[in-house]
């Protein structure tokens, strides 16, 4: 079964800002088809690690080995930020980066940017090829919007939509690129309990329907413990523990660094 195949392997990833080691010799791997969680308290270096994987930051040391769409292993370090999505790895943003003055449909079409073959001239003159391409992509985007349950809003502007809808649109946008691995940056941030539950269900459905692997960097323990197959907990840029949600919950280190505080503050 391909379940045990490694899709993403992080080896000795390190990055420092000035003297501060934000991520320090971090190593873990994600298997194909799993939902993997990267957790840690505030300032643990989760988002920094995330940005190193997607090449928004250039790590000082380490490797990010990704098994790309054609099935070969490549090191993402040193690749251009805008080339990462072509390999089959796509990300979302913590604060939702959508285009307010475009419709939800158009926002999804942006996700298909790399799939378009036609350029400026073909589109300016509306050549048949450009029309056909736009029709195909629109069809696909509408299907994804239907999958997300927001197809009735397809032609509404993104500006002014509820946060829950925007989060869904951002997820939908990642699906437009036929990704192998989706990395979600704190998908539950800003969502209420009902929306978070809905999101958990949606992430699972995405894995089943679009057969992708999901890596989520998350703060919200209920989401992580509820849907992740395996979890890596980090603190001060270093790995504390790795394992199933139960193992992580049982880990003394993790409790000290994160869950202990979280539990007392939640109570």
């Amino acid at each position: 079964m391909s379940q045990s195949k490694k899709i993403l392997t992080i080896k000795g990833l390190s990055i420092a800002f000035g003297g501060l080691k934000a991520v320090d010799d971090l190593s873990f791997h994600v298997n194909a088809g799993e939902i993997y969680g990267l957790i840690g308290p505030n300032g643990a270096g989760k988002t920094t690690a995330f940005n190193c994987m997607t090449q928004f930051y250039k790590p000082d040391a380490g490797q990010v080995i990704f098994n790309h769409l054609q099935g070969e292993d490549v090191d993402l370090v040193g690749k251009k930020t805008h080339d990462i999505i072509k390999l089959g790895l796509v990300r979302t943003f913590q604060n939702v980066e959508l285009i307010g003055d475009l419709t939800l449909l158009d926002n999804l079409l942006i996700g298909a940017h790399i799939a378009y073959q036609t350029g400026l001239f073909a589109n300016a003159f509306k050549l048949p090829k450009a029309r056909r391409e736009e029709e195909e992509m629109t069809k696909k985007a509408l299907e994804i919007l239907a999958f997300l349950g927001i197809e009735t809003k397809a032609y509404e502007l993104a500006a002014g939509q509820p946060y829950g809808v925007l989060k869904k649109v951002e997820l939908g946008r990642t699906l437009m690129s036929n990704p192998k691995l989706i990395i979600l940056d704190e998908p539950a941030a800003g969502l209420n309990d009902t929306e978070t539950a809905e999101l958990a269900k949606l992430i699972k459905e995405i894995r089943e329907t679009y057969s992708c692997t999901v890596l989520l960097v998350e703060h919200d323990m209920r989401l992580v413990m509820g849907i992740c197959d395996r979890i890596c907990a980090i603190s001060f840029g270093k790995k504390l523990a790795e394992g199933t949600p139960k193992e992580i919950q049982a880990s003394k280190d993790v409790q000290e660094a994160y869950l202990g505080k979280e539990a007392s503050s939640n109570a």
Binding site: T54, F56, K80, T81, H82, D83, I84, I85, K86, V90, R91, F93, E97, L98, I99, G100, D101, L102, D106, L109, I110, G111, H113, I114, R173, S177
Partner: peptide
């Protein structure tokens, strides 16, 4: 759309493969 995305969020544009 690529131009608009670039103006609204350079990070999102890069993540979507826009050079």
């Amino acid at each position: 759309r690529a131009l608009l995305t670039m103006r609204a969020s350079e990070a999102a544009a890069q993540a979507m493969g826009i050079n």
